[in-house]
Design a binder for these strands. Structure first.
Length: 491
RNA sequence: GGCGCUAUCGUCUAGGGGUUAGGACGUGAGAUUCUCAAUCUUAAAACCCGGGUUCGAUUCCCGGUAGCGCUACCA
């Protein structure tokens, strides 16, 4: 057990600390989600901190994009967003403390010198670790040089012997020989902290109790543990979360297509579904069966919060499965009240340039609900409801299997006559057209195909009669007439 | 290269010293239906390899292999 173990009775405080050098990607989103779930489950505090000390690569747009992604996912934070770029004094003070305590020292080596030495080391097959030359400069000499205006970075003096480790809540004991770690830079020569310093200073200053973050940080954690010790501070609980990989098993990146949370939003993924999916990627709720011996896959946010614990987190990396996401999303779409779904669909259609009188979207929503996996799918699924003119289709599709153009023409003619007079509700339409099939002596399958193609412009479409009802008499008749003309031209 | 971590169906995973190794997504087949979808039934599909420990290892230990991560005055 580490000597500095956090008092177990402290109210949990966790954070999500993205660096605004890119959009909120799925890996970050899941880390944020786990922190959020943990905070909500324990009644703790969720803090948002923007790690923007890399001025070159950080930007305001990225920051607002990240916040937008968080809001979309419903991950509300209790404190922040804090910006590291505005907390530089804290880091300088922390570095000074470390220097005063003999745990860090100024380093006058320039970037160029270091690069050169590293190159030489590689060429000679030697380890590339920093050679600690500035560590040997007497303190007074160093102070004099600084006073004379010489620029210096601050490096941590890593102990030459022993090992440093910590007990990870997910991975268990992780330990590394101190000789494996070089004297890393805490503060750059320009006074800006590196990640290693700023995380520790902030995590300490913000009173964090649990550090839940990606497993890519596991190897660097000992560097942070050393600082906690040097600062005589209590260690938080570290919980590293396995990484999310692309289908090719490499770390998910832009190469794999959509990786930003915003992209999924635009695709028509519902935030609840995305959250559900992300939660199940690398975490399994304990002891939840659906009563049939089947594990559940669909969890409400409430359930996720209730069930979330650190020990359900798995240790191995997970491949992001778009198919499963789509399936989960379709589950959520089908569970949605029609009213609500229809409201969500309005802007999707509008964006695609599909406009319709009020009530139209509400009317067609139940017809496509089971046929779409994303909101975006609604556009190709329902475009014919909006289009004044059907997109061109193959006239041969009008002909039922084992039939000919004459049969199709016959069917359409019958249909046209019927539609001109019957009440235009789906029940009546169905009754009338079924009766027509009987009188024509053909089965309903072949009977309805020409009509469906004529009316929808395609062979696969939502249920015919409901569709016709929504389309209205006029449109249906017009489209059937057009189909007859096309058929005639086939001869 | 060095160091660290990980390893159950194609994918996400459950499980655990003796099991028909369970579920979900996806895939195949069938049923149902006006097409598609949905739904139901069903099938194929996994314990990385080698040594131990043990009466017995997929499970525990060691080694190998593979994958991933870290190895910056990036985060």
């Amino acid at each position: 057990m580490p000597e500095n173990q956090l008092s177990p009775d402290r109210a949990p405080r966790v954070r999500f600390a993205p660096s605004p050098t890119g959009y909120l990607h799925v890996g970050g989103a899941r880390t944020a989600l786990f922190n959020w779930l943990f905070a909500r489950h324990t009644g703790g505090t969720f803090i948002l901190r923007i790690e923007d000390t890399d001025f070159e690569r950080s930007s305001e747009e990225m920051t607002s994009g990240i916040l937008e992604g968080m809001r979309w996912l419903g991950l509300d934070w209790d404190e922040g967003p804090f910006h590291q770029s505005q907390r530089l004094d804290l880091y300088k003070a922390t570095a000074a403390k470390l220097v005063a305590g003999g745990h860090a020292y100024p380093c006058f080596c320039t970037r160029e010198e270091l690069d050169q030495r590293r190159k030489d080391a590689v060429a000679a097959g030697r380890p590339t670790k920093y050679d600690q030359r500035c560590r040997r400069i007497p303190r007074q000499t160093a102070e004099a040089r600084i006073a004379a205006g010489e620029a210096a970075a601050i490096r941590f003096a890593v102990p030459d012997e022993g090992s440093t480790g910590f007990d990870d809540a997910v991975f268990g004991r992780v330990e590394i020989q101190n000789t494996e770690i070089e004297d890393f830079v805490l503060l750059r020569a320009d006074g800006v902290p590196t990640y290693h310093l700023s995380v520790v200073a902030d995590d300490l200053d913000m009173g964090l109790t649990h550090i839940i973050r990606g497993a890519d940080h596991i190897s660097n954690t000992p560097k942070q543990v050393m600082q906690y010790r040097a600062l005589d501070a209590e260690l938080p609980v570290f919980a590293h979360v396995p990484l999310i990989l692309g289908p090719d098993r490499t770390r998910l990146s832009k190469r794999h297509g959509a990786t930003s949370v915003t992209a999924y939003k635009e695709m028509g993924i519902l935030p609840e579904a995305f959250r559900n999916f992300l939660a199940l990627l690398g975490w399994t709720p304990g002891g939840m069966k659906d009563g049939n011996g089947k594990d559940r896959e669909v969890f409400s946010s409430r359930e996720l919060v209730d069930l979330f614990t650190l020990d359900g987190i798995s240790k191995s990396n997970a491949v992001f499965d778009n198919d499963k996401l789509a399936w989960l999303n379709s589950e959520y779409i089908r569970a949605m009240p029609v009213e609500e779904l229809s409201t969500s669909l309005e802007p999707v259609f509008a964006e695609a340039g599909l406009t319709a009188p009020p009530g139209k979207v509400r009317a067609l929503t139940p017809l496509i609900r089971e046929r779409i996996k994303t909101l975006r799918d609604a556009v190709p699924a329902a475009d014919f409801f909006f289009l004044p003119e059907l997109a061109p289709y193959d006239a041969a599709d009008l002909i039922p299997p084992k039939g000919d153009a004459a049969l199709a023409l016959d069917i359409l003619a019958h249909a046209r006559e019927l539609l001109a007079t019957t009440a235009f509700d789906h029940a009546t339409l169905e009754q009338a057209l079924r009766a027509a099939a009987v009188s024509l002596g053909i089965k309903t399958g072949p009977m309805f195909q020409p009509i469906r193609v004529a009316v929808c412009g395609r062979k696969n479409a939502p249920p015919l009669f409901e569709t016709m009802e929504v389309l209205g008499r006029e449109t249906c008749l017009k489209r059937i007439q057009q189909a007859e003309i096309r058929l005639a031209s086939l001869h």
